[in-house]
Amino acid sequence: MRDGSDKFLTEKELIEGCRKNDARAQRRLYELFAPTMLAVCIRYTGSRENAKDVLQEGFLTVFDKIGTYKGQGSFEGWMRRVFANQSLMYIRRNDALKYADEIESVPESGLGLDSDDPLGKLNAKELLDLISAMPAGFRSVFNLYVLEGYSHQEIAEALGITEGSSRSQLSRGRVWLQERIKKL
């Protein structure tokens, strides 16, 4: 997959190449970030098949908007935000953000995990599978808050819900996840 001719490109050179629509730079950027970004997409969309579509759209967005990256903050962080937004758009398009019933069925506070709980024994793939299996509403808020570091205000604005609803879904999402982990 890699021809070796561009493996010494710096991040700045790579970004500059993508800005100029250089095909080699675009390919190199994809090779470097596709695995990480696919994991992000799976976390949000809940399935690998859906995540592939989002990954493709996300990279096209990155190549299209890379000129807006001003070098402030990490480039990988900027890309994660692009893919997170792309995933949320996908979820909204597919009307997956329906979680009223899910909120009803899951308590806001659970038993929690003991210090010797099995969380530490889970590998990344198993954990990703669990998060992917979360209901869409829980999953979106959980990903944005826990893994992307968004505030409840930002999540509320992004998802078009109230801050209270965001907090509630996060709590229920944690309980939902802890219960699944305990059952492993």
């Binding site: 592939k52 954990l127 990703l128």
Partner: peptide, 23 residues
């Protein structure tokens, strides 16, 4: 709990199939 989740997933990636780049 959140910290453990972040730590467990840090740097984790899933190799995409070749057809993604083709598209």
């Amino acid at each position: 709990f959140d910290e453990q989740i972040r730590k467990a997933l840090e740097g984790y990636g899933v190799e995409p199939s070749g057809d993604v780049w083709t598209g």
